[in-house]
Nucleic acid binder design. Structure first.
Length: 224
DNA sequence: GGATGATCATAT
DNA sequence: ATATGATCATCC
């Protein structure tokens, strides 16, 4: 998608733009941008996030960088029910599977993406169509020290398992706030990884995700 | 009903 | 081919 909106110059400007979208439906947003919505969300799972990126002036890249690089802010749309409860987990970034060097949590892509997030709730009724989902009140958020302590521990445990070459032992059951799940076109997709003997292997691509319990806590703490 | 593992579209 | 944008589909 082409960018027709200039990037916001400050976090305040970004938040002001986001607030102005509260109450707008996805159909209205799409029409204002001249975008035709897919008839089924199955064939346009990422469209909501892409519409928000476009109208908020995100620096449209597919990189391991926050959406607003100059502000260090990541944009996340999050589907919520009428009570504000998240309906899905939140993808963070690709999980490195050939990891070896000594890297600290604060240097990780996970941290760079999570340290400052503009959450845009999308009020969603899964029985209804994408077009009548409605944008909620945005929240500019940073993790608390307690949040960070848990996220750091989760990340360290995941990365240790990867460094030990235990890729096939990874399961979504692991991690308090941050989990690892498949992130691929399908279950036959393969990426390079390292096994417990230190040899290169191919394995299922994975991504880091935030559990809904965590994002629910974020939203409810900040809206209530 | 909620979580895990699987999947779809697009940009680069 | 891989990363980002996510939600779907099935199992418990």
């Amino acid at each position: 998608m082409t960018r027709i909106v200039q990037p916001p110059e400050s976090s305040i400007e970004l938040l002001t733009r986001a607030y102005a979208l509260a109450g707008v439906t996805i159909l209205e947003l799409a029409e204002s941008l001249g975008v035709i919505l897919p008839h089924k969300l199955l064939h346009g799972k990422g469209i909501t996030g892409q519409l928000l990126e476009q109208c908020l002036g995100a620096t449209a890249q597919s990189k391991a960088q926050p959406d607003f690089v100059h502000l260090g802010i990541e944009l996340k749309t999050i589907p919520v029910n009428s009570l504000g409860k998240p309906l899905e987990s939140t993808y963070v970034c690709t999980t490195p599977l050939t990891y070896s060097a000594n890297i600290q949590f604060e240097e990780s892509v996970v941290y760079q993406k999570i340290r400052h997030v503009l959450w845009v709730p999308i009020i969603t009724d899964k029985k209804k169509s994408l077009s009548n989902r409605r944008i909620g009140t945005a929240l500019l958020w940073q993790p608390t020290p307690d949040d960070l302590a848990i996220l750091r521990t989760d990340w360290e445990e995941h990365m240790e398992q990867i460094m030990l070459g235990d890729l096939e032992k990874i399961t979504a059951h692991q991690g308090v706030y941050l989990q690892i799940r498949p992130k691929a076109a399908n279950s036959r997709a393969r990426r390079l990884g390292i096994n417990s003997d230190g040899n290169l292997i191919t394995t299922l691509p994975r991504g880091f995700y935030l559990r809904p319990q965590f994002t629910q806590m974020i939203l409810q703490k900040n809206y209530w």
